[in-house]
Write a protein that binds this DNA or RNA. Structure first.
Lengths: 171, 171
DNA sequence: ATCACTTATATAAGCAGTGATATAATTTTT
DNA sequence: AAAAATTATATCACTGCTTATATAAGTGAT
């Protein structure tokens, strides 16, 4: 079963996401997980353009447009044309959206505490491990590491008796 | 930016998956990442039913059916009706599929080494951390942890001056 | 043998995103 | 001022998975 990192990561996401999703339901919120990044951004600064939301939320513009369409249908936000620039649309939380925000914050809070409880159960905190992994990959991308492994493999084929190249641990 | 675990996990997956995907391309393989779980299972025991593949690969039956349709189009597998039970279909690797397998193994190998190189760069190995997190969540699901956090919260509302409930560290 | 039930696979619709591209509004060039 | 380039948003088609449901084949009970 010792499959790749990707599989483990996906499994972990399922384990977490499903629970968080369910938590919204249990809290009686009519709310989709995909709203969260947008809600978070709007909670911090209301009245943003779509592009700006995408930027702050760290997702693509089409994702925001599509999410907002759903949120609009759920009456969480209002989207109006900017009067300074007719290309831009200004997104604001509706009263309903703002009222939801309070209960959401509670949900996010509980989730954070659940994450803390998980970390406490582990020999090394997951969140920290993830942060460090992401950092390491930003410095030295996974693609480079794979390519480095290929070169070692090519070497092995060329000189099958050669010792494993010494740069093994540095990569 | 200190968002939830889910976001971090997704980010990490993107960082890894993209690279692995690209590696297939660089290796000159006409191959989709989604084939991997099925390929792995077929590599171990060829000639399985769809349900059995799903079981062994740890994905749902529809996912396997859909993946096999693509793999069949790519001539990687043959799917024939079982003669003992006409409901069942027997999946086998084609010659082409088997020939691909060798080069795939190399890719997976490189990927594993890349993962090792990542682990070596970290204060605590990611793969181990993930394994432990999954294990911890199987023992004590995230949903339960969230609910536990809610009860603490409800307590706080009911008796705001009460100390944090004593089961805090046990959860 | 027929009805009910279970098992195996297929199909459909949904989810949450992506990249590519279209359309509209606004600047910049010329 | 008209043409070209840029910016903002929308739309579309994909990915890879899921759940729910349909269809087909086998099994058991009456």
């Amino acid at each position: 079963m010792r499959q790749g990192l990707g599989t483990q990561l996906r499994h972990l996401i399922d384990l977490l996401d499903g629970a968080v999703d369910a938590a919204y339901g249990e809290a009686g919120l009519d709310y989709r997980p995909r709203y969260t990044p947008v809600m978070r951004v709007l909670a911090a600064h209301d009245g943003l353009s779509i592009g700006r939301i995408a930027e702050l939320a760290g997702i693509t513009q089409p994702a925001v447009t599509q999410t907002l369409a759903l949120m609009k249908a759920d009456k969480l936000v209002t989207v109006t044309a900017s009067d300074s620039d007719a290309r831009q649309r200004v997104v604001r939380l509706s009263r309903h959206g703002r009222s939801l925000l309070g209960r959401l914050q509670e949900c996010w809070d509980m989730t954070r505490r659940a994450a803390d409880s998980l970390d406490a159960d582990l020999p090394y905190p997951l969140s920290q491990c993830l942060r460090e992994a992401i950092e390491a990959l930003e410095k030295h991308p996974f693609g480079d590491r794979i390519r480095a492994a290929r070169h070692r493999q090519a070497d092995r084929h060329a000189r099958p008796d050669a010792a494993v190249s010494p740069d093994l641990e540095s990569e």
